[in-house]
Design a protein around this nucleic acid. Structure first.
Lengths: 217, 217
DNA sequence: CAGTATCCTTCCAGATACTG
DNA sequence: CAGTATCTGGAAGGATACTG
């Protein structure tokens, strides 16, 4: 006998949305899945503190709502979770919230954890596609992970792994430094001078990339 | 002896944002304030189920975070709450979430409540400023409240009350009908035929308005 | 690896009473 | 009117142990 899931009882887009993804941890699970399918234990590892029962509950509910689905890979018996089209539709909302949250962010509190993919989220949140230049790709090396930003016909996408074709710029940094830059609490120039940020590539590309990320006028 | 407010402990824009506005009711309070300053009892009345202590807690916390402030009107001793600039910064995130939630919304469940201002939020969520035409204003009469949409130099704003200058279109409907249209579960043409939606004004203006709201190609 | 099951703590809803 | 204070049952969250 399942009890009613608590909901706001309002016929309103926001309230209805929050009834689905407003509970604790849910949007962070979506954040993880926005950068690609994940296995159960990957989620558990990237969401320190969640507790396995809660993760299972959330995944089950999100599955019932049609926001995520389980993908069974035939090769191995390992299953993983991925966003459905509906779930992918949360990207804009997540980026908007992340952008706002970045603006409210200051220094990391002692004990705070960071992940390279959250820095990648920051990239996606702060970049302005309307300032994109001609087609090219950038490679971001954050801690031990690699991401690429590709500009293609005015469309900008951020993805995991190396750039498909040759990139015009390589940026190397650590997660904290990048999040700080995104939050505006660290000047990219200062980070470069202290060697916490290393940019390698064509000077013109550096200008185009910085402009797109809103780091210079 | 204050307990620690539960937080995610992640140095990430999204997690930091959720630490501030991720708790139950919080974003709905922000939603209310996005359409203008509100008094305590107004909030209480527009958020059925919240409970006075919880509302007080949330308002206090939002105040401490600098997301809202209390405005003391000298004329009367009545105080009201309004968003700070930081709080206003949540508009895009709220609209993005509302847009997504609208897409997931079906029919109102029995017992669901609706408010005209939530329908106004739906207007704001679905309208596409890039499809705005020349300067003009529209007046929306939803239940017993009036809102205006004004197009001014490509900028589109939705506000409470009547349009400042003459409007080229008047739309009359009820909250449920409008939210349904926004959710895509009711065809505006059908609503017009059944008289649940009445549009009055220049035919050209109707086309421009519908286009901006994404109700026609 | 991918979850259940269990136990305990904290938070929330709803009611009510009180204050300036 | 605009809150604060207190109480209570129930639901949600967190930690840990266990299982196919």
């Amino acid at each position: 006998m399942k009890h009613h899931r608590r909901n706001y009882g309002q016929y309103c887009g926001l309230a209805a949305g929050l009834d689905l993804i407003g509970e604790r941890w849910t949007l962070l699970i979506v954040r993880e899945l926005l950068s690609g399918p994940c296995r159960y234990n990957e989620l558990l590892a990237n969401l320190p503190g969640i507790g396995t029962n809660l993760l299972a509950d959330r995944l089950k509910f999100l599955g019932q709502c049609g926001i995520i689905r389980q993908r069974c890979r035939e090769s191995s018996k390992l299953r993983d979770y991925e966003l459905t089209e509906q779930g992918e539709g949360l990207r804009e909302a997540v980026l908007a919230l992340a952008r706002w949250g970045l603006g409210m962010l200051d220094q990391p509190a002692p004990g705070d954890i960071v992940r390279p993919r959250w820095a990648a989220l920051a990239i996606e949140a702060i970049l302005d596609p309307s300032r994109a230049g001609p087609d090219e790709q950038y490679e971001f090396r954050i801690d031990d992970e690699v991401f690429h930003v590709s500009v293609l016909g005015g469309q900008v996408t951020v993805g995991h792994g190396r750039a498909a074709i040759g990139h015009t710029l390589t940026l190397t940094t650590d997660s904290v430094t990048f999040v700080k830059i995104g939050a505006g609490s660290l000047n990219p120039l200062e980070a470069t001078l202290t060697n916490r940020l290393v940019i390698d590539g064509d000077e013109e590309a550096v200008v185009r990339c910085s402009r797109m990320l809103g780091l210079m006028a």
